[in-house]
């Protein structure tokens, strides 16, 4: 079993990265890998509540983030500093996350067996 960290760094919908990152996370979890997700920079916007991607012709993969606990993916982290820079807080997010600082993120990237950036 590998420790796989999926790093979300880009805003949703305008590129396929966010959806691909989530698909990759779910697929890795299905293959019994230990998966954690980290959201930094505009990647945090993937987790905003009340999104309606269909209005701009995009698939609503955002709802699927809620399924992660059923895939035993419980380690979901958001960069505290970037969340604050976006003038958002935890109540604006769709799922329960743990806020961590840059240093803790560095440590998690170092501890992972594989890191994939989306």
């Amino acid at each position: 079993m590998k420790k796989i960290t999926v790093l979300f760094t880009r805003s949703p919908h305008s590129t396929p990265h966010g959806r691909e990152g989530l698909d990759f996370a779910m697929l890795s979890a299905s293959f019994d890998q230990q998966v954690s997700l980290i959201f930094i920079d505009e990647g945090i916007l993937n987790l905003l509540k009340d999104q309606q991607p269909m209005l701009t012709g995009n698939r609503d993969y955002i709802a699927t983030f809620k399924v992660l606990p059923l895939y035993d993916v419980e380690d979901i982290f958001v960069c505290q500093q970037d969340l604050a820079l976006l003038q958002l807080n935890q109540q604006d997010l769709l799922i329960d996350v743990e806020l961590i600082n840059d240093h803790a993120i560095q440590q998690k990237l170092a501890d992972a067996d594989e890191v994939l950036v989306f």
């Binding site: 760094t9 930094i40 920079d41 840059d102 993120i105 560095q106 990237l109 170092a110």
Partner: peptide, 12 residues
């Protein structure tokens, strides 16, 4: 884009 800036932030 900001790929390098992000990388430098989290690089040790």
């Amino acid at each position: 884009g900001n790929r390098l800036a992000l990388c430098l932030r989290f690089m040790r």
